[in-house]
Design a protein around this nucleic acid. Sequence first.
DNA 1: TCCGAGTTAATAATCGTTCTAAATTAGGAA
DNA 2: TTCCTAATTTAGAACGATTATTAACTCGGA
Lengths: 143, 143
Amino acid sequence: MNRKAQIRKTLANAGLKATVQRLVILEALTNNYSHPTAESIYKQIKKDYPSISLSTVYNTLEVFRQCGIIRIVNTDSITARYDSVTDMHHHIFVENDNKIKDYYNPELDKILKKFFSKNKIPNLEINDIQLQIRGKYIKIHAN
Amino acid sequence: MNRKAQIRKTLANAGLKATVQRLVILEALTNNYSHPTAESIYKQIKKDYPSISLSTVYNTLEVFRQCGIIRIVNTDSITARYDSVTDMHHHIFVENDNKIKDYYNPELDKILKKFFSKNKIPNLEINDIQLQIRGKYIKIHAN
DNA sequence: TCCGAGTTAATAATCGTTCTAAATTAGGAA
DNA sequence: TTCCTAATTTAGAACGATTATTAACTCGGA
């Protein structure tokens, strides 16, 4: 199944009409691994689809979020950054350039799950566990 | 050393003048474990010190943040929430009531540190590792 | 005490987001 | 297909949180 068909399927599963706007917004987000802001999704889409409204981008992202097909990344910034991956994964916050990278590591996931099944937090039903790794990229000198 | 003396010391170590405003703001934050917003710190302080300005609260929190004596908690919300604890700890996001609780567990910290010293991320110098645990509080029925 | 840098207060400005209401559109029924 | 209705989109106003501006104040050193 190609990407566009996959996106249509995601919308159908969520019970959402497959409007042009929803298709392009979700496609923009799934093609973008930089955890973009609403504004930057809007700018990207506007190139090919100039009549799109910023409101629509915000509204649609909020609809997607409520359906659970996207998320807002937890950050210390005012501006929301969106993530189309809802499977278990972690984030690397790169201090040099304000980028957020995904970090996948099934071994780590296993360790975390094991830890919290042994060490239950009283009365809490855990829905999601996510690591935030904050760091700086360092230059490697070959000499 | 009492709390007020400790706060004075923290300011001195950061090279900051110990003004009344800074003292009350930092005291309010260190006494408050709910990761308050700027607005709620402002309201709390205003009771005892009515001439304080909301701007001062914002400015001062930002000064503290830049000095590294407080942090902004990573959240998916528009409103910044502040944390006076900068030692390694994690956060529990309680979905029922929008509260953020601290989670300390030295054993977990050891596991995480060990994992990342074994599994280095190329070119990345890690400054902080933090877990975000999202969940719901469940009622326990005794019968 | 006086000076000057640092700090604060009040408020205007800005930014990101949400709301509102009118226009448009999608998709089902006839 | 055409019509109908509810859902969706658009543009722009409104809003809330934060930041900037600037004049007044204050602290600590000379």
